[in-house]
């Protein structure tokens, strides 16, 4: 009955989904929307790097849309529509919130206004796309379809993609703050080594405890070492690469020497690893 009603009012159903998307955009965007460094980054972030990051974000949105797609027929066209809508929601939600906070004012230059919105649109659009399935009540039929989607998620490539998305989201949330650099200075090399080990352990605990989407047990024949290498170590590699990329985007690596870069990366890879680990829970 419920799905019949939905069939008769596809527009209304989609409007409700859009409202959920706005909710998700605000929830995931707020920590950044209320962070001073993020406003400042909006006007001084290197433009080519920001544009590249927006394109990467868009690709991630399209990938995530494939997971949130309940329809088996999920096609590239639908993913594109989903990603565009989510990005639009992210931009509108960010602009509205910044305007209410008095961060966007009429006298500001175009570059400043667009830059501030563009930076915020990344986490907000991420929230928008994953909210659409997180906040929705599920009918039995949908739950069945979700299991199909979950099976599809079981593929190793998709698992890696989810880890990239999760790592990118959490790293992006934390990288703008001065504390990333400060913690790097405060830590001795031994602290950094300990942090790397803790990150790997935490990641493995999540991999083991969370298990695999759609499966109760790890894939057959996967002993400890296989799991450790294929998921934990690979996941930490993802976290490191994503951290480096985010640090480069924010210009944190400019003028830093190798030791500084290594310690900043180790610091940022900790939240990135946690993000990689829980992405499979959240998405």
């Amino acid at each position: 009955m419920a799905s019949q009603a939905a069939n008769q009012h596809p527009n209304r159903e989609y409007a409700v989904e859009l409202a959920r998307a706005f909710g998700g955009a605000i929830i995931f965007g707020l920590p950044n929307l209320m962070t001073m460094e993020m406003w400042f980054l909006g006007f001084y972030l290197d433009r080519p790097r920001l544009i590249l990051f927006l394109l990467v974000n868009f690709a991630i949105l399209m990938g995530l849309s494939r997971f949130s797609g309940f329809e088996e027929t999920a096609s590239v066209k639908e993913d594109l529509l989903d990603a565009l809508a989510a990005y639009g929601v992210g931009v509108i939600a960010s602009a509205a919130t910044l305007a209410i906070f008095g961060i966007l004012l009429p006298g500001m230059s175009m570059g400043e206004i667009v830059g501030k919105i563009a930076v915020q649109s990344v986490p907000a659009s991420f929230g928008a796309i994953i909210a659409r399935q997180q906040m929705r009540g599920k009918s039995e039929e949908e739950q069945e379809e979700e299991r199909d989607v979950a099976e599809r998620r079981g593929g190793y490539g998709w698992q890696l993609f989810l880890m990239v998305a999760g790592a990118l989201f959490l790293a992006f949330n934390l990288a703008p703050t001065e504390e990333m650099v400060l913690i790097g200075f405060k830590m001795s090399p031994w602290h950094a080594v300990a942090l790397v080990l803790v990150s790997v352990l935490a990641l493995h605990a999540f991999v083991y405890a969370v298990g695999f989407a759609g499966q109760e047990r790890p894939p057959e024949g996967s002993g400890f070492w296989r799991l450790f290498v294929c998921y934990t170590i690979a996941g930490y590699g993802v976290a490191l690469l994503v951290s480096l990329y985010v640090l480069w985007t924010f210009g944190r690596m400019d003028g830093a020497d190798l030791g500084q870069i290594a310690s900043m990366t180790a610091v940022l890879a900790f939240p990135a690893a946690i993000g990689a680990a829980i992405a499979r829970l959240v998405v």
Binding site: Y14, L18, L54, F58, L80, L81, A83, L84, A85, A86, Y87, G88, V89, V91, I92, V114, I117, A118, S121
Partner: peptide, 12 residues
């Protein structure tokens, strides 16, 4: 929604 999103994406 997608058209609005596309417009905003291209504008940004």
């Amino acid at each position: 929604a997608a058209a609005v999103g596309l417009t905003l994406t291209l504008a940004v």
